[in-house]
Nucleic acid binder design. Structure first.
Lengths: 91, 91
DNA sequence: TCTTATACCGGTATTAGTATCACGGGCATG
DNA sequence: CATGCCCGTGATACTAATACCGGTATAAGA
């Protein structure tokens, strides 16, 4: 084994992450935010739907800038469960 | 063409990014920080040397947590030139 | 000198992120 | 009703990130 496959926990974290982005997007359209962040709309959709659970750092940074949200809050929020309780790390 | 190859600008940004991490690491060893962040030492080395210019968001988040640094400051710092001036975006 | 620890480098294998293409649904306007 | 436009989606293609292995160099210490 070379590259560790994503664990279920990581995929769930990706779903929470995407939900946060979609919530932050609000009324604005995908293409609008994607264009503002400089990524393709399909990429944004995959991230929001959790199908790209571990996006690139600068992709997230650009999206966060377009959405005017904090990276630290974003990382902290999706490292917690949907109920807000701290999540047990897999390793 | 499907996935756009990394531009020279992105690679340079990756080098600045790695330099920031290395500077923040200070005296501590690579394996120590890598273990604390839950990534392999090779991955941390590649990121620090700029050979992995666009690491995953959660990888960076874990490293930043291990180094006790802010993701927002990190993203803001490496989006600027080494001299501190704002960098022109490629797109 | 020999061992140990750290870091760098090259190669290799495998998974995942990102972009393009093609398709269908909703909605307005002709 | 037909046409176009925007949004979202599924399939496909290609590159990059991550991890493991072996080798090399350097410095510290027994």
């Amino acid at each position: 084994m070379v590259r560790t496959p994503l664990t279920p926990w990581e995929r769930q974290r990706g779903e929470r992450f995407g939900s946060l982005l979609r919530q932050a997007r609000g009324e604005r359209s995908m293409v609008e935010i994607a264009a503002a962040a400089g990524v393709s709309a399909e990429t944004l959709r995959k991230i929001e739907t959790g199908r790209a659970p571990t996006p690139a750092f600068f992709t997230v940074a650009a999206l966060a800038a377009a959405l005017e949200m904090s990276l630290d809050e974003l990382a902290g929020a999706c490292s917690k469960g949907a109920d807000g309780r701290a999540q047990a790390l897999p390793a």
